[in-house]
Amino acid sequence: MSHSNDHAANHHVDSVGTYIATFGALTILMIATIAAAQVNFGHSIVNNIIAMTIAILKATLVIAIFMAVRRSSGLVKLYAIGGFVWFLLFFIMFCDYATRSWEPVKGWYGEESKVVPDYPHVTDHPGERPEKHDSGH
């Protein structure tokens, strides 16, 4: 293992042009995000998807070029991608919130359970609702 002191040589250094191009692309994408947010595409899901794809695009640009992951070893690539894949595992939690409404639970005053029902009090009689009052004491 020769002790190579001039290691800059064997570590390929990107040209200034690549960095400037990436920076330009990032700025354009930022402007695109802002522009896309102003336009009303009928349903908001379309807006959300556009915003997220642009953000993911910018993220991949920063990771691949600025963080030089495209040029680094497979291991670094594995950890770079692995972190974000694991973040997606969080969204298993959404199955719980999505399927909660499939189990109908009758409320205190007979209506379906809402997310923040009024608190029934010891003095409240089940079934008939006292005049509407703000929740909490």
């Binding site: 694991w86 595992l89 298993i92 199955c95 719980d96 399927t99 909660r100 499939w102 189990e103």
Partner: peptide
């Protein structure tokens, strides 16, 4: 190990469909 945390919450008001998974 990262996919099984729901078995701590079967009776905690988690929906049963999630519990089955």
């Amino acid at each position: 190990g990262f996919l099984v945390w729901g078995h701590h919450m079967f009776v905690s008001g988690q929906s049963m469909y999630q519990g089955v998974v």
